[in-house]
Amino acid sequence: MLRLPKFEVKNPSTVEEAIAMMHAIDGEARFLAGGTDLNPNMKHRLFTPERVVALGGIEEMFGITQQEDGSMRIGAMATLANVASHAELGLAYPALSQAALLVSGPQLRNMGTLGGNVMLDTRCQWYNQTYFWRSALGFCMKKDGTKCHVIEGGSKCVAAASNDTAPALMTLGAELEFANATGRTRMPIADLWQADGIWNKKVAHTELLVAIHLPKPSADQRGAYGKLRDRGSIDFPLFGIAIRLDLDAQGTIFDAALCAVALQARPWPLKKAAALLCGTKPGEESFTEAVEQVAALAAKQCRPMPNIPGDHEYRHAMVSVYTKRALLAAANGDGPVHHV
């Protein structure tokens, strides 16, 4: 059997205890939420911590609760299955609910958490492999080596953000509550990312994502998520697109957001494209025309690379198709856009 590296496991029951355990070791420690990303990655020797701080006993990190101001607090340890099946979330934030439903397969969603999906390591076909496999190539710059096999001679790691829920949370303007050695901080999810496939986040791995906060939706907010993948289950996205549309009382779009994933190190917001939707009205020609323009612009803004499996040119060809379909689904209150 593919082995995990040797480590010790700590089971804290509070956030503060977890932070302390993270720091009270000279070597590397890692937080373990659902284990669906870290455990395979450790089996691949992508991470070899001496200590694993398991978060399953921290009550504060569970639960999905509506706050007094109408916002929603989702504990980082809420499972993707919790998120996908939560009725209020589904109504208020359809893109998130749909994205959570399309992560991997049923068991992974029962185990994997929303916090874990946000903090998911970037993925690459040259990286998510065993130590032996990677050794046959002399490794790559993301782990154990210096080269890039995606872009020969490339100097920057282009491993792809592959978390389905990240673009949904981006369109929703989610805020992330982190705990670290100095206390708690909140940051907009848009500020989390950096364009580096080796570590695509601006927080260190020693900081703990405690909860995800979603602002109260507008009166007529709609959304959808579209996911390209080979199989109907299990697979990571080959391309993902989340949509948010805010409609006024007349049914005219006054705000919109689009965000794509499975391209490069960061989830990729499509602001210019989203702007084209404002002032248009679903059901009328203005919207239909804007959808075509948005899809075309999305294809210009999204450039899949041969980082994750699959034909990247084909993935590129699907950008406009999935963008268009997801926009229509969002407007119609449908979705997710998925081939099964």
């Binding site: 397969g105 199989r231 289950s233 697979d235 990571f236 499996p309």
Partner: peptide, 10 residues
């Protein structure tokens, strides 16, 4: 994961 044998949905 990468050698895609069909799931029940495929």
């Amino acid at each position: 994961l990468d050698y895609r044998i069909p799931t029940s949905l495929d």
